[in-house]
């Protein structure tokens, strides 16, 4: 296996039908390969499409043309154009994603939010609880908050819940969208440790790290994303 993810001639435009049919190109013939064990940091100016790329890789945005090939369960699948059922399966087992914001579900306790990626794989709560508790403790979430819904948590707490959730299960590939943003240096350090552990266990990473120090500690190489300048045609 030479690569985990192979992005080949990716094109992506946004069409804003409700705003005068505006067309915003984001990627044109974009290439990238993620090798096993590699940790790639995406760099480039704000608004260039770094987050968009992660979302394309996660199937959250629809690919215009080109291929996003993924090794999944011994098969090579194309995320662009895969049917939703297959994308869900890939998300369950192969690609993990830590977004910038936790999408909070009302009334679900924090500990369950963290265990969910494991329980959907069929594990019982009893089996996976220790892992979730370990992550929450390491990320300094007070134990009295574990059984509460994160809806009312502070931004930093929510972000740490989000990270705990992202790393409770292990995936061959992780997509990280500014995992340390809005965290204090101590917690930021813990998050870097957790990510390093995942890399140590064989996870390949594509991430956006604004903090240069974090980037230097985690990334094995950087990929720069160039703006697509021509806004018409």
């Amino acid at each position: 296996m030479k690569w985990m993810i192979d992005v080949d001639r990716l094109n992506k435009n946004f069409f804003l039908h409700t705003q005068g049919e505006a067309k915003i190109p984001v990627f044109r013939d974009f290439h990238m390969k993620l090798k096993p064990g590699e940790s790639i940091a995406l760099v480039g100016p704000s608004g260039v499409g770094k987050s968009t790329l992660l979302r394309l890789l996660y199937g959250n945005y629809k690919t215009g043309s080109g291929k996003i090939l993924v090794h999944h369960n011994g098969d090579v699948l194309n995320m662009a154009g895969a049917d939703p059922h297959m994308i869900l399966h890939i998300r369950k087992w192969t690609i993990g994603y830590v977004s910038q914001f936790l999408r909070v579900i009302p009334r679900v306790p924090a500990i369950q939010v963290v265990m969910e990626p494991l329980t959907v794989r069929g594990a019982s709560e009893k089996e996976v609880r220790p892992r979730a508790e370990e992550l929450l403790s390491r990320l300094r979430i007070p134990e009295r908050l574990w059984s509460l819904s994160p809806t009312t948590f502070s931004g930093g707490e929510q972000q740490r819940i989000n990270i705990a959730r992202g790393f409770s299960a292990t995936y061959p590939v992780m997509l990280l969208d500014e995992p340390t943003a809005s965290l204090d240096p101590v917690n930021s350090g813990t998050v870097v440790e957790i990510i390093k552990e995942a890399i140590g266990m064989g996870t390949s990473i594509i991430g956006i790290f604004h903090d240069e120090d974090v980037r230097n500690r985690l990334a094995s190489r950087c990929v720069e994303i160039q703006p697509v300048n021509n806004h018409t045609k």
Partner: peptide, 21 residues
Amino acid sequence: SGLTDQVLDDPQHPYTQLLVS
């Protein structure tokens, strides 16, 4: 049609875009 987050975050059809916005 498609994945919920894809349809809501990156709607393609004008009507869906209107709905989401």
